[in-house]
Design a protein around this nucleic acid. Structure first.
Lengths: 348, 348
DNA sequence: CACCGTGCCGTAAGCGTTTTCTACATGGAG
DNA sequence: CTCCATGTAGAAAACGCTTACGGCACGGTG
């Protein structure tokens, strides 16, 4: 039916072993023989049977990248960077590695399922991106799975995710707390005293860290947060829009709104504008991440730039064993405050 | 070393065959036996060896999704919809299917490589999204590969891509031409006579079709396009920014700029604003795709909404054999003109 | 009571590679 | 001229699963 290695061998008048060797290029083969084999491969246009190969070699060319939301450029940018480091030549069987991204949709169950699937496929490595869910039970399940996988020789790296202790996974985490703090300090420095905060989903580490940074800044400035100044939502613009309406209802005197990320900030801008508030004259708005579109907002968004592509590339290289993991298996990646037009001095 | 099916069988006091059967659930097994097996699986926490399974069964649980640019929400939204239809239970071995997205970066070579990799893995299906590259040689190579894969039983569906005749692939194409035409007709209807056009990369089908639609509208209105009114670029905002500057240099009297997509349109807006042109009073701007952020532009972008998620979901279902392919293996999906604030009546 | 269909389950033959071990030349050193 | 290192290639044993085939109980039918 389909052409196999044996067919190629027959045609090239060599043994299957030899064909395998030229394909894998990990064993000396005479140039003339190699050429004969290659020609046969071509003529029959043979394609290696991946599963068979993986079975025999006890490892595959698969590398997984887990993301929370593939439609969100935040993850897209990271995934793209990771993939470009991971893909390309260097796989087994003279081939490329198959770098694939899996969309968990932020669901812990799907995350675990994908991990199992990747484990089942004997993936060579997997990179997990984005914040983790804080449910202890789920975290334990993930940690256990990660431990199993690293023990089985799968390299695991966390990109933009808190470390998972004792699992053998190396982590590149974003300094969300520091970024959140810098943003709010900036606003306080401008003179704001009444700041609304639109947080992400309650159960995510990213959400908590950014919020904690915000509150640290408030505390440091001696500002007491009033109840109702913080609203939880999702990481999309729609959520930002709705949360802002709620914030306005709760306290119309807010002079600044800090958003969980740039998309949320955009939704906030839309809501504020509809409510007749000018930005930044009446209300300042700040985002997080500095995604490409945030510079096109009018006014351009003040935000914290996260080096998504750089971190992703580094994570990819570490996953491929092409770069040393950071000492202790943990590195913190800082963001950079980008001050733009959406924040300004409050009136009065 | 790692626990195998045989270990589970031993522990459950049954034969390997029985274990396989309860795992695959495709053969009657007594309830009591099944439970015993399941318990053993749990106690040993056994994970199936995917490659071995795929080898024996001559097919895998893998489903591939090819995208041109994973960092672009256009693809992210489609991929997300496809993946949510494809993933989930229904795979072999009582498990989920592994739906993975592969980022070609728009490179024909990488596209082919990924196809080969997926073929090698004996993928159950693959969905290709986004426009194709027009190079005849590359198209032939892709067509040949697709043909091979469909013959081998892999279901192939093209989503937002022109059909590939004679390959057995089913296609859901977007009516880019119609959308482009509608957009320009709208502008002409408003009174515009001097329209700049920022096209995508020259070699992509999507680019050509949108441009042809634009020109059809011009021709139908008896407007003769002047040389220099069309600039080619990439599908990102940076490119839109630069192309607009070029357009302005070539012909400052343009009253409208039609962009290849929304990101490009955003870049165009930025350039126009910097050049001191108001939108839409001085220059109207139109985009394409209606990505989420385009409604947040100020003014909101007039554009053509493509039902990305719907088309993706349908493609996913077809790939899974859960929905009948359209008659003739080809369906055209139309866009919808969304008139918003970025287009208006020209001055004078 | 004999017989056969039915429901479960075990046996064993693959599936297509990789890789260890062995074997055969060949050529240079002693 | 002998011997051994070296370079190259073949034989065959895994790798862990699926599944066709056969067999054994069991219970219902003739």
């Amino acid at each position: 039916m389909t052409v196999t290695l044996a067919d190629v061998a027959a045609r090239a008048q060599v043994s299957p072993a030899t064909v395998s060797r030229v394909l894998n290029g990990n064993y000396p083969v005479a140039a003339s023989t190699r050429e004969r084999v290659l020609r046969a491969v071509d003529e029959l246009d043979y394609v290696l049977n991946g599963p068979a190969s993986a079975l025999a070699a006890a490892t595959s060319d698969l590398v997984g990248i887990l993301v929370n939301d593939i439609a969100d450029p935040f993850f897209g940018i990271m995934a793209s960077a990771i993939q470009s480091e991971i893909g390309g030549p260097g796989g087994r069987a003279g081939g490329e590695r198959l770098a694939v991204v899996c969309n968990t949709g932020g669901s812990p169950d799907r995350e675990l399922t994908y991990l199992t699937l990747l484990q089942r496929q004997r993936a060579a490595a997997v990179v997990l991106t984005g914040g983790a869910v804080e449910d202890p039970q789920h975290q334990a399940a993930v940690a256990q799975k990660l431990r199993k996988m690293t023990q089985a020789g799968t390299r695991i790296v966390l990109c933009g995710r808190p470390p998972a202790d004792d699992t053998g996974a190396v982590a590149l985490t974003f300094d969300n707390r520091g970024g959140g703090r810098a943003l709010t300090e900036h606003l306080i420095g401008l003179g704001h005293r009444r700041l609304g905060y639109i947080a992400g989903p309650e159960e995510r580490t990213t959400t908590r860290h950014r919020l904690e940074g915000h509150r640290e800044a408030l505390a440091a400035a001696g500002i007491e947060e009033e109840p109702g100044w913080t609203v939880h939502g999702r990481y999309d613009r729609r959520s930002g829009y709705e949360a802002t309406l709620e914030l306005l209802r709760r306290d119309p005197s807010l002079t600044a709104v800090v958003a969980a990320n740039d998309s949320v900030a955009l939704g906030a801008c839309a809501a504020l504008r509809e409510a007749g508030r000018r930005i930044p004259e009446d209300v300042s708005v700040a985002g997080f991440d500095d995604l490409p579109f945030s510079i096109d907002a009018v006014p351009a968004l003040t935000t914290v730039r996260l080096p998504l592509a750089e971190a992703g590339a580094r994570a990819g290289r570490i996953a491929m064993g092409r770069e040393e993991p950071p000492p202790g298996g943990l590195a913190t990646v800082r963001g950079e405050l980008m001050v733009r037009g959406s924040t300004g001095v409050p009136r009065g």
